[in-house]
């Protein structure tokens, strides 16, 4: 960064050690992911009998993946995860941004009151059981809606939108107003399109949350066909209810897969979309994060 080329030998060593240290940190960060990847491509029974596999597959096999992809239960769970992430994120972003836009307009009557109501939600919420009972009374238990409606708004995200919307020059909106557009269509046609960085940031955060969350599924659903893949994995990993996985292996005639190897393949499939989408969204979130001061 500071290009004074006359580095003392002390500085030179500092730089070298710093680079080495950073490489070690990167290795420590990536290796566990690599380990799972390698083992998921290894023959299941071989992995169980012949010592641990650290660097590359010892007996390469695609069978774990074949079984995962042909397992109806896992694929249903995957479908739930994909749909709740897509639907949930679109609704969350649109709804939160819409409310944020209304609250960003100074002339809005009762604006103070609405802001206070929102701020309270940041500090205090009902405990787990009252919340559970209320969603039960609303009839949301064991429905797909429980993934969407309770998560469609967040005041924290609203603040991030609000900060961004305040920076939009008034001229843009004024011009549209003269053309006779109402506030809702100004929001949809003008405000949203110019707010791409912040929309992408919130979409990333909420999308990742929707994709990764397992607890909503654990707490509010019972039916197998409603559980997202993370809830499925939670039940398999933490509660070691291997029934579902054993069910998956049962179909294979030449069984070279184990419940462990199938678990690993499922974990990889669950993680790949995040890793693929991540570099594209990364350029937005650092910027978006700074707009909203703090989050995460």
């Amino acid at each position: 960064m500071f290009t004074s080329d006359r580095r003392t030998s002390g500085e030179l060593w500092f730089d070298r050690l710093n680079v080495v240290g950073m490489l070690i940190i990167c290795f420590v960060t990536l290796y566990p992911i690599w380990y799972v990847l390698v083992n998921s491509f290894n023959d299941g029974t071989d992995a169980m009998t012949g010592g641990l596999i650290y660097w590359i597959p010892r007996q390469f096999s695609l069978e774990n993946y074949e079984i995962v992809f042909s397992n109806a239960g896992i694929m249903t769970a995957m479908g739930i995860t994909v749909s709740k992430t897509l639907i949930g994120t679109v609704i969350h972003v649109f709804f939160t941004a819409m409310v944020a836009y209304a609250l960003s307009r100074k002339e809005l009557m009762f604006r103070k009151l609405y802001m206070v109501m929102g701020t309270v939600t940041l500090f205090f919420s009902a405990p787990l059981i009252p919340n559970y009972l209320w969603l039960r009374d609303l009839g949301l238990l064991d429905t797909f809606g429980v993934y969407i409606y309770p998560a469609m708004f967040s005041f924290f995200d609203l603040i991030i939108f609000l900060t961004f919307f305040r920076e939009i020059p008034d001229g843009l909106e004024e011009a549209a107003k003269i053309d006779g557009a109402n506030d809702f269509s100004i929001f949809v046609r003008i405000v949203l399109p110019v707010s791409l960085p912040v929309v992408a940031t919130i979409a990333l955060f909420h999308g990742v949350w929707q994709w990764n969350d397992y607890f909503v599924g654990v707490l509010y659903t019972n039916s197998d066909y409603l559980q997202p893949i993370q809830t499925f994995l939670y039940r398999v990993i933490a509660q070691s209810s291997s029934n579902q996985i054993v069910g998956a292996t049962g179909g294979a005639i030449n069984r070279t897969v184990t419940s462990q190897s199938i678990k690993l393949a499922t974990m990889v499939i669950t993680t790949v979309p995040i890793i693929v989408a991540y570099p594209f969204l990364q350029r937005y979130f650092v910027k978006g994060l700074m707009i909203g001061s703090l989050k995460g």
């Binding site: 990764n212 993370q230 939670y234 990993i237 933490a238 678990k263 669950t270």
Partner: peptide
């Protein structure tokens, strides 16, 4: 960005 279920599994 990885879930605790995955990391917990690892």
């Amino acid at each position: 960005f990885l879930s605790w279920v995955i990391l917990g599994g690892i």
